[in-house]
Design a protein around this nucleic acid. Structure first.
Lengths: 233, 233
DNA sequence: ACCTGAACACCGTTCAAGT
DNA sequence: ACCTGAACACCGTTCAAGT
């Protein structure tokens, strides 16, 4: 990882909000959200921490900014999707957008956490939702049903679902499996379920493939349900 | 708000992990999660910050602990629910549990954030999920379908759904409404939807009633979908 | 066994001062 | 107009020392 500071001082790019945001995203991508501090951001960009405050009001603005950049990236990808949206076609169109958004987020694993923590919704997020509403409305949703749909999808609309625990994440870990077995008396159903699920599909814990399967199961459940409601009106 | 420190030093309750966790929950309930610092926790409990480390390894353990306490509270409430679980009755039983869990979380608005940030799933959470799995299995779910169901419900299983933005939260705020109107050209569908949704139900933004309606819409959508899958096997 | 004082390595941020 | 040095008010945490 080379910082801008190291690349020789003869060509010194001036600071700017945009450059700060790009640098902040790189820091979070490389080292996680914890590693994004104002001091490190300054270092990455070859300046002192105090210089940042000339271009940005505070750290909150940095977080607002990187969230907006990521969602703008999502909008760019998603706007290139050209699918019919009328009638029953709404579902495929929405599904493809959501899965495309997810692909972008997989490159920025910190983004869901930042998006959730924003109190001011960025224009980029509003634009993303606006397009989704448009597709649903084309598909025959009333405004009211579209509104319910957005709430029901929640963060899934933007391509992520936070799980409180991954029931099969520890399946490969002997320690964790043993710990769970020792509690089989207290957790009979969980243990029973994991025994079968793991046995059926030993590859289900490799990488994020498993999450991808479950994510698609979840959105299809929701989209199918919404489609039935749409048809009933 | 009185701290234990103020209540006269003649009766000085000794520190303990449990007392720290109770105090930490009080701090977070009263002042939000940001206000929960080790130094303030010590103050609340009438000790120096360094004393905490005798009873607790670090702040992470405090956060793990208060998450566990809240979910234990949920388990206590939920275990008192006595409903039939066989066959089609599974749905009502699960629904009531989830809504009861939600009631507990409404008293601890910081809890969802803490629960999401835990990397070690607490035993209390495992127990909660174990009971849910048991009900579904009684209701005729295969282990595999129960597994999918847990993922699909995600945090909703524990009673909360984080929204990235609340499309109608700013409906009562003239500033925000004006800002949105000025972007009507860019956000035609969002503006159109809000115009109708707000008009239809002017009370939809008061308190968390609105969220409650949408939360129930969301879980019913999921539970109904899952029920159809259950019947097909 | 339980608690503390002094200290360390970090934060975000302000403000007057430099070019 | 843009950047910085010194300083402030906070963090979480360690460690040797007190009772």
């Amino acid at each position: 990882m080379t910082t801008d500071a190291e690349q020789g001082s003869e060509l010194r790019i001036p600071l700017s909000r945009e450059r700060l945001l790009r640098a902040a995203i790189k820091i979070a991508d490389d080292g996680g959200l914890e590693s994004l501090t104002m001091r490190r951001l300054a270092e990455q960009v070859g300046a002192e921490a105090m210089s940042l405050y000339y271009h940005v009001a505070n750290k909150e603005e940095v977080l607002d900014g990187i969230a907006e950049v990521v969602v703008t990236e999502i909008n760019d990808v998603v706007d290139r999707i050209d699918l019919p949206t009328a009638g029953a076609d709404w579902k495929k169109a929405v599904r493809e957008r959501i899965l495309a958004a997810r692909q972008v987020l997989l490159r920025h694993p910190w983004a869901p956490r930042v998006l959730e923590s924003r109190t001011n919704t960025s224009l980029a997020v509003l634009r993303y939702y606006d397009a989704l509403i448009g597709i649903m409305h084309d598909g025959g949703f009333s405004w009211d049903l579209a509104h319910h749909a957005l709430h029901a999808l929640g963060s899934r609309a933007l391509g992520f679902a936070q799980e409180l625990f991954d029931p099969s994440s520890g399946a490969g870990d002997p320690d964790q499996t043993a710990a769970l077995q020792s509690m089989a008396g207290q957790l009979p159903n969980l243990v029973g379920m994991l025994a079968e699920v793991v046995h059926d599909d030993p590859d289900s814990t490799l990488g994020w493939c498993d999450d991808q399967t479950e994510f698609e199961f979840g959105i299809d459940l929701l989209l199918d349900g919404l489609d039935r409601m749409r048809e009933r009106t």
